[in-house]
Design a protein around this nucleic acid. Structure first.
Lengths: 197, 197
DNA sequence: TTAAAAAACAACACAATGTTGATAAAAATA
DNA sequence: TATTTTTATCAACATTGTGTTGTTTTTTAA
C-alpha cells in the first residue's frame, strides 16, 4: 500500500493550499474567488474543481496540516497533569499561535469564518478532555461533567488567544500561558487580593 | 426631534430583519440570497438595497434587537458582585439563549458566521469587565489584567453555551448557570475530589 | 390637497460559479 | 524504452447572484 497518489495531484493540492493560506492573510475569505486561488497557485481554474468542491473545503484541508503541527508538539508532553495544571500545554499553544500569528489573526478575525473558531475550540476541548481523563486518579471524581469542564477551558483559551491577536500580542507567550493556566486552575476568585500583582 | 422616520421605512426594515432571522433558522447564511430575503419580506429586491448594503449588514442590525433584550435583563441586576460570583448573571444569559434556542443554534453553528461569535464574546467580556470594575473594593487589585479576566469569563461562557446548544440542551439553564459560575469563580482545581458530585 | 419620499417594476452589465469536451503533458506501468 | 493511463490545460458555455438605473405607482407628511 504505497503512496498511490500521483505526483501531480500532490503538487496541485499543495500549491492550492499554500495559495489560499497566503490569500487569507491578504484579504477577507469572502472576497477570495476560486480564480484568485488558481491564479496564485499558477494553474487553471478547472484544475481546482478537479480536487476540491469549494474554497471552504480547501481551507479545511489546508488547516489540518497546521493543526497537525500543534498536535505533534502536544504529543511530547506526558499528561501526568490535566491541561489546567500544566503550564507547558498552554505554552505550546501560545507559541504555536505566535509562530503563525498573521494567519491566525486573519482566521479568527474574519467575519466569514465561524467554522474555524468552532474547530479550534472543539480541538482544544478534546485535547483537554483526554489529558484530564488520563491524569485523574482512579478514586477521583469530578463535581462537573468532564465535557463542560473541557469546554470551559477551551473557550477561555480561545478567547484569550483571540484577544491577544487582536491587540497585537502585547504580552509574551510565557505570560499569556501563565495567565491562562492560573485562571483555569484557580478561577477568578483567587485573582483578587490586596494590592497583588 | 420627533421620530422623523417614515412609517414605510420602519416597516421595510422590520420586515427585512424578521425575514432574515427566519431564513437563518432554515438554511445556512451563505445560501441565503438577497432575493430570498426580499421574497420572504414580500417586497422588491431593489427595496432591500435601498436600506442595506448587504445581508451581513442586515443581520448585524437584526441582531442588535436581540442583544438589547439581553441588556435590558442585565440592567435589572445591581452589580455588587462581579459576574463570576453572581449566578444571577449567568442565569439570565442561559435563559435568554433558551428563549431563542433555534436562532442561537443556527447562528453559532453556521460555518459562515464568525463575526457573530466574536460579537457575543466581546459583548459578554465588556459586561463582565463593567461588573467587575464596579464591584471591586477601592483597595483591591487584580493579579491579572482585567481585560484578560473578562475574556476568560466570556470565552468560557460562550463555549458552554455553544456546547449546550449543539447537544440540544441536556441540562436546565439553572444547572448550566451554576456550572459556569462555579467554574469561573473557583477554577477547575476545586472540581476534583474524592467521589464528589 | 399637494409636494415629497418611498416602493414597485423591469432591465441591465457584471462577476463568479460549476461544468464540458478536446488537446497537451506528465506519470505509472510493463 | 514504449505505451497506456492519468492529470492538467484551455476555451467555451449556461446559470446564478449582484448592484444599479430609470420610470411609474403608491404612500406618507405637511
Amino acid at each position: 500500500m504505497a503512496k498511490t497518489v500521483d505526483r501531480r495531484v500532490r503538487r496541485s493540492r499543495k500549491l492550492l493550499g499554500e495559495a489560499l493560506l497566503e490569500l487569507v492573510i491578504e484579504k477577507p475569505f469572502g472576497d477570495i474567488t476560486v480564480q484568485d486561488i488558481a491564479d496564485r497557485a499558477d494553474m487553471n481554474r478547472a484544475t481546482f474543481y478537479l480536487h476540491f468542491q469549494s474554497k471552504e473545503e480547501l481551507l479545511q484541508c489546508a488547516l489540518e496540516e497546521l493543526f497537525d503541527e500543534l498536535v505533534s508538539q502536544f504529543g511530547k508532553t506526558t499528561p501526568e497533569q490535566p491541561i489546567w495544571e500544566n503550564v507547558q500545554s498552554e505554552l505550546f499553544v501560545f507559541r504555536h499561535v505566535a509562530n503563525h500569528a498573521q494567519l491566525y489573526k486573519a482566521l479568527l478575525g474574519d467575519p466569514n469564518l465561524g467554522l474555524v473558531i468552532h474547530q479550534i475550540i472543539a480541538y482544544i476541548a478534546r485535547h483537554s478532555e483526554r489529558e484530564t481523563r488520563s491524569s485523574l486518579a482512579e478514586d477521583m471524581a469530578l463535581s462537573v461533567p468532564i465535557e463542560l469542564l473541557s469546554h470551559h477551558v477551551a473557550g477561555s483559551l480561545y478567547a484569550l488567544i483571540d484577544w491577544w491577536l487582536r491587540n497585537d500580542m502585547p504580552h509574551s507567550p510565557e505570560y499569556m500561558a501563565n495567565v491562562a493556566q492560573t485562571l483555569c486552575a484557580n478561577g477568578c476568585k483567587n485573582m483578587v487580593g490586596r494590592g497583588a500583582v
